[in-house]
Design a protein around this nucleic acid. Sequence first.
DNA 1: GGATTGACCAAAATCCGAATTTGGTCACTT
DNA 2: AAGTGACCAAATTCGGATTTTGGTCAATCC
Lengths: 197, 197
Amino acid sequence: MMDLREKIATAAKQAFSEFGYKATTMDQVARLAGISKGAIYIHFPSKEALFGNMLQELITHLREAVEAELRPNADFFDNLERGLRRVVAFRQEHAVFAKLAQEVRQFGTEPARAGLRHVEHSIVDYLKGYLERGIAEGDVKPCDPELVAFVLMRTYTTLVNDWADTHEPLSNENLILLFHQLFADGLRNSSKVAKTE
Amino acid sequence: MMDLREKIATAAKQAFSEFGYKATTMDQVARLAGISKGAIYIHFPSKEALFGNMLQELITHLREAVEAELRPNADFFDNLERGLRRVVAFRQEHAVFAKLAQEVRQFGTEPARAGLRHVEHSIVDYLKGYLERGIAEGDVKPCDPELVAFVLMRTYTTLVNDWADTHEPLSNENLILLFHQLFADGLRNSSKVAKTE
DNA sequence: GGATTGACCAAAATCCGAATTTGGTCACTT
DNA sequence: AAGTGACCAAATTCGGATTTTGGTCAATCC
């Protein structure tokens, strides 16, 4: 049988995914886990702890998923592309992200906002390390890895969250393609023929 | 003496800048313009029209300011940088933008949100035309100009506005460097030396 | 006689106390 | 010791009275 703590965590994730942070009640989680409310507090000190535990597990699983995707001998930017694609897929596989983002937009729920920020920061931090390795190995031009990681992540978030407000949402393929074109190779057309003036 | 319509428009901008859209009342605007409330409606059909008029004027002035900044014979990406920098400066010179952004974050006021979106869209639209010309002239690789314009605009304002929330603000030089590195030339280090392992 | 006013109105926003819900506890059962 | 569920204080929601606000228009002014 499933260990109780795990059962509670699963029920919590299910509830947070469906209702968001605010609208999830401890009674609901207890009912979903098939236990009483008091039992939750034997394993988790608070609702926020339940939430934080879920986020931590997501971060761990995301990192594992991304690392499983990387090919040590492949081109740096191909791997970056792979990793980003995995992040996109992971977000879609876990409805919590969409639900929490919607909740933040609609109600501005503070713990939900902080949670998403926490996840984003851990991704940026991971990305920073990856960029540092790329610079050290000579695959990436020297740059401020934290700043570039920040921009990459923000651009990604903006594209996923904000572009769809006013346009057709981007397909994964277009998203990755755009990233590659913008950040890896740049927009400058270096094969331009000499201007005649 | 200042023409009445202009006086009303000036008072409206002053009020919107200080209080945002929602908290600005027609009585307030009338008082600031030194006239009665009814007189406003001789020149503007509604509060929204007053707001829209202000935004339209801002858009016009911004476009003029940007165009005054461009150097026809300069490098495409240098001009792009120049223009974007002017946009950011313009936003800082006109307190309405900050006030409206704050209002949207705090209250989600719909006309304020729509107004900011309208301004941003007109900037992106202008940028899109600029990119299209760049593509046609061979300065820029083929790409979706609207999408790229959107990303450029958002990334630039994010760098200027949000990076400083948690880090040392970027100097203009670093900003230009980063911008060129990211979008113009890309991060790929094409002169990589053969790996020794 | 057109421009301007300000009392006026319906609708929307705001207040505010009552009623409900919720996170968390703990004496008690199993 | 693990788990329960009635219980509590604090937070949230509800609803209706009260105020504010965008917009109008007959009266007034120049």
